[in-house]
């Protein structure tokens, strides 16, 4: 464990908790893409199946459990509890256009052709594009609430910190995982446009509005 990965994980946890709290306290999921949250729940489910087969550390196991619980709680709030506030007119990104190619790629490019490893690879590839429905929704509505912007900033920042973590691990212990690195770079690049707008607008208290 290094500081980059730790801060990255905490940033990820903060994003997940922030979103869950925002939906719960405002009792509304307006502006939130349910599809992205479904994809994240799928990412955590397929990635953390090793919860039952390998124990890394208390931190690792507890974070996995928290991520999975929060992901399903968020999906539940969006599609069940506050579904009346779900903005399905703007959450129209075709998620199957992400899941199918990613599923195929996971079969073609992976470290080991075993069920757990293919599912892990699937989750790594899927996570890199899972935010697209949310970014697409914001570009359609033309704006995002500031809390949603903070959520996206923390979520995008976590994988950017992981890239630094991978650089650090490569130079300090010769460890690298090319699949995670490439997917992590793709994921972070997808946020660049948003990062620019966030830094130039939201920081100064303006509303974030993506070019429609």
């Amino acid at each position: 464990m290094n500081v980059f990965r730790l801060v990255g994980d905490l940033s990820h946890l903060l994003a997940i908790i922030m979103l869950l709290k925002k939906i719960w306290s405002s009792r509304s999921c307006a502006g939130i893409s349910g599809k992205s949250q479904l994809l994240f729940a799928l990412v955590f489910t397929t990635r953390y199946l090793d919860l039952f087969t390998s124990f890394i550390s208390v931190y690792n196991t507890s974070m996995k459990v928290i991520y999975i619980l929060c992901a399903y709680a968020t999906v539940y709030l969006i599609y069940v509890k506050f579904k009346a506030t779900y903005d399905h007119n703007h959450d129209t990104f075709r998620a199957e256009f992400l899941v199918v190619p990613v599923g195929g790629l996971a079969f073609l490019v992976n470290h080991d052709f075993t069920p757990l490893e293919i599912l892990w690879t699937f989750s790594i590839y899927l996570e890199s594009v899972a935010i697209m429905p949310q970014l697409f929704m914001i570009s359609k509505t033309g704006e995002a609430e500031s809390i949603t912007s903070h959520y996206l900033f923390c979520l995008g920042g976590y994988r950017a910190l992981y890239i630094i973590n991978w650089l650090y691990r490569f130079y300090s212990e010769g460890f690298f995982d090319l699949i995670a690195i490439v997917a992590g770079c793709v994921q972070t690049i997808l946020y660049c446009d948003f990062f620019y707008l966030y830094i130039t607008k939201v920081i100064y208290g303006q509303k974030l509005s993506l070019p429609a």
């Binding site: 690792n60 974070m63 892990w120 490569f170 010769g174 460890f175 690298f176």
Partner: peptide
């Protein structure tokens, strides 16, 4: 290549 069989990252 330094790849581990168990993934120790979240």
């Amino acid at each position: 290549t330094g790849e581990t069989d168990t993934h120790d990252e979240l």
